[in-house]
Design a binder for these strands. Structure first.
Lengths: 224, 224
DNA sequence: AAAGAAATCATTCTATTGGGTGATTCTAAG
DNA sequence: CTTAGAATCACCCAATAGAATGATTTCTTT
């Protein structure tokens, strides 16, 4: 059974710092959380700076963090808190659902992401998940995040790369590293002429005019 | 309160398809899940092909999927199931925790990721989260996934790029697109000589020897 | 007012590139 | 056995790129 929703009263409740600039929202949040027997709200902050200070002072288990905050936004605050105290789990609770903000928030170190306006239960589940180091993502943003995991490999470019012969691939990789034709020749124990032939073959197959574009195609195709 | 861990008996239980090749594990899983009042195991499959077929036939709410499976692995199976029936939620339950497998699994469409050997409660939370479209990531892999969200922007390269002047940036962008110096000159209404000067400035600041490497640095720095 | 960075252009010289063409060898597929 | 692709090399030629210097103008910062 989960802690946040459990019935047994544990000796050490989960301590929470609420970071929210809207007084109404802050109050409502505190009400919702304190009604849980195993949660204890130990602090509040209404801007990012205060959030970092309070986190350092109170060392809560969990920070429930808004994004839109005065002075220092929730993402920057999350970064600072995580940097100073990696063990503090941070649950984002915000109405921002744009891809950039969500990704930025999670990259900055947030453990869970909740969207305002959905049920309190979800927030409790998120807090619960975060408390044990897991991650919870609100349905509104879950797919968005998962889709973002796919490496942006350009399919067309990858297909073009696939046409290259073994040798051409080797040459291309060295081209990407900025080697000149003579350098490639000596690295592969080939005549410079041969390298030139391969380079031409590569450019033809990739349908590009010069080695810079060939390198760009290679990189976009995921040839790191 | 969550469904999977709730006490009330709902009229329509969550239907589950178990995909697991180890008979022992399959049995244990089924025991664990059927003991929950609001879950109903409606099918089992012990390889990827059967999983896809059973999913199509049974249309369960949730598929609990292993990764290491005979014939068709769990990741490929997930892809096919999600493609045919996007509303079926898939919970990965596996002992694989390498970055590649986790990312591949989530990219293929999995909604939640659990690691074998941890508590049944976590699996129930994951099923619960997945059921409503949310995402749950096991503590073992949560950080791994979150870290993977950071766009792989090479900090050193980005710093080097930041040194460039406005004009140099414009020139660099065109270089990345494969434009020659004369082409860049006419696009920016400059003398080819000026462009050459800028190109040299760029290569000096980026500490590279030719335009290919300059383009590579630009791309790695996130200058798409 | 002076200093410095940014942006502009020129000239000269050498190395590298890319296009075109042709040839040989080897291997795999038809 | 023939064909096709891959890999190897050569030669020629025009265009481009890169290095080295020097110079002017504008704009900002001290």
């Amino acid at each position: 059974m989960s802690n946040a929703t459990g019935s047994a009263s544990n000796p050490a409740p989960t301590t929470i710092l609420i970071v929210e600039d809207d007084p109404m929202m802050q109050l409502g949040l505190e009400q919702s959380l304190t009604s849980q027997p195993d949660l204890e709200v130990v602090g509040r902050a209404d801007d990012g700076y205060l959030a970092v200070e309070e986190a350092k002072k109170l060392k809560p288990d969990i920070v429930v963090m808004d994004i839109g905050l005065p002075r220092l936004d929730g993402i920057a605050a999350t970064e600072q808190i995580k940097k100073a105290m990696p063990d503090i789990r941070i649950v984002m609770l915000t109405s921002h659902t744009t891809e950039n903000e969500v990704i930025a928030a999670l990259s900055s170190g947030a453990d869970a992401y909740c969207v305002k306006g959905t049920s309190v239960e979800r927030l409790l589940v998120a807090i619960d998940a975060a408390r044990e180091g897991a991650s919870y993502l609100d349905p509104t943003v879950a797919r968005l995040v998962m889709d973002h995991l796919k490496s942006p490999v350009n399919e067309a470019d990858a297909a073009a790369i696939a046409q290259l012969s073994q040798r051409e691939l080797e040459v291309l990789k060295l081209m990407v590293e900025g080697r000149s034709n003579p350098e490639i020749a000596s690295e592969l124990y080939l005549s410079p002429n041969t390298v030139k032939t391969h380079v031409r073959g590569i450019m033809n197959k990739l349908a590009v005019d010069d080695r810079v574009q060939a390198a760009v195609v290679a990189l976009r195709a995921g040839l790191v």
